[in-house]
Simulated scan of single mutants.
Amino acid sequence: MTLLVSFCLVMGLARASVPESKPNLASVNAAVAYADDGELILAKNADRVVPIASVTKLMTALVVLEAGQPLGEWLEFYPRHLPAAANAYTRIREGSEMRRRDMLRIALMSSENFAAYTLARHYPGGYEAFVAAMNAKARALGMDDSRFVDPTGLSSDNRSTAADLVKLALAVAEYPQIREYSTTRYYTGRFRQPRYSLAFGNTNVLVHRDSWGVALSKTGYLDEAGRCLVMMAEVDGRQVINVLLDSFGSRSPVGDAGRIKRWLQTGALGRVAGAARAYERRKNAQYAAAGDAPAAQ
Rank of each mutant, 00 (worst) to 15 (best):
A288V: 06
G189H: 07
P294I: 06
A132H: 13
E234C: 15
T184L: 03
A233P: 09
G12C: 12
V166N: 09
R192H: 04
S21F: 03
A290N: 05
E66M: 13
A268I: 02
N29C: 15
A67W: 07
T90G: 05
L206G: 06
Y89N: 04
D47V: 09
A233S: 15
F191K: 09
L25H: 00
M59K: 06
E66I: 11
R121E: 08
L58K: 09
Q193D: 08
M1W: 13
D223C: 07
S21W: 05
D37A: 05
D36P: 07
G213L: 11
F191A: 08
T56V: 06
R262Q: 08
A116M: 03
F130T: 01
R227K: 15
L168N: 11
H81W: 01
Y89F: 07
T188A: 12
G142M: 14
A46S: 14
R121T: 03
T219D: 02
A84P: 00
K218E: 10
R93K: 12
G95T: 03
N135P: 09
V207M: 09
V235K: 02
P83I: 00
E174A: 14
A33E: 08
A257V: 06
T183A: 03
R281H: 14
I241R: 01
A273D: 08
A136W: 05
R100K: 14
E73I: 05
F7A: 13
S197G: 09
N87M: 07
G153M: 02
E39G: 04
D144A: 11
V240F: 03
D36T: 11
K261M: 13
A162H: 08
D223R: 12
A233Q: 09
L141V: 07
Y175H: 15
E97Y: 07
A120D: 04
A46W: 07
T2R: 12
V64I: 04
I52R: 00
P70L: 03
A30K: 04
M103V: 00
G291L: 03
A171N: 08
R192Y: 02
D223N: 10
S21V: 11
L108S: 03
S155F: 05
A132G: 13
Q286R: 13
L244R: 10
R209A: 11
F130K: 02
I178C: 00
Q69N: 15
